[in-house]
Design a protein around this nucleic acid. Structure first.
Lengths: 129, 129
DNA sequence: TTGCATTTACGAAAAGTTTCGTATATCATT
DNA sequence: AATGATATACGAAACTTTTCGTAAATGCAA
């Protein structure tokens, strides 16, 4: 099966991955500017984190030019699934139901989103035989 | 609103909380035995973690007897919601839909669970007016 | 009561994560 | 070529989390 050596991203690394997923290949400066919209982070801090992410295989980079361009090297969906499965295990004792109930429970989802979920369930049920 | 000073549990603390939630008030020895069903952990390691959890307010304890009895001091549902909201923010850009899709996507839920989710959605839709 | 097993307390090492200072390289402008 | 702005590289400090060794207390059994 798909065995993945790349380690689980830390919180800071996940923040950076989100930016890379959303904006595509980016310079350190750009990522740092985006981060600073939420909280203050020094430039070299961001740089160091991105270098570490490169070493870990979480990001790849193009060093042809002076300003290196970084890009996510893990897929958004796969990473989401992995983190979610871990949380399901660590906090919900493996119950997808309880997790979904919590996720939907507090008006987090709009009517349109609920419709989409219903459609998804119908699809799952028909696939299931 | 409900402001909570108690800090977010770490991974190890969460493992212990799960045991306390499942089995109720427990001795350090019992918790350590449960932990060791999954992975090897030294007794004093577990003890130290539980002492820290007490200091943080994540657990309370009864020290009347020689063997102290620990109990969770945070609610399972609230903790789940908190962690889930954080993950939704950190990895799903706040989209409950994307999160639920991932959660249900890979056969994680049984037919019965899907039925329950459908019922929940119906309830949410009717509440919504 | 003496000794053994079990418990808590404490401190610190080990490991992992985040932050940043400083040195050095590169490029554009004068 | 010299200057200034901006980039990467590197190492280490600061912080957090996990692990465990050791000492001291407690209870039990011989």
């Amino acid at each position: 099966m798909t065995e993945d050596k790349r380690s689980k991203p830390t919180e800071s690394e996940l923040e950076i991955l989100q930016i890379l997923w959303e904006h595509g290949p980016s310079s350190v400066r750009f990522v740092n500017e985006q981060l600073n919209r939420k909280r203050e982070v020094g430039y070299t801090t961001t740089l160091k984190l991105m270098q570490i992410m490169f070493e870990k295989g979480l990001a790849r980079r193009n060093t042809d030019h002076r300003s290196h361009i970084y890009e996510a090297n893990v897929e958004e969906g796969e990473t989401q699934k992995r983190l979610l499965d871990e949380l399901m295990d660590a906090a919900f004792r493996g119950s997808a139901l309880k997790l979904v109930v919590q996720a939907l429970g507090n008006g987090n989802a709009s009517r349109e989103e609920l419709d989409e979920i219903k459609a998804l369930i119908r699809k799952l049920e028909s696939d299931e035989s």
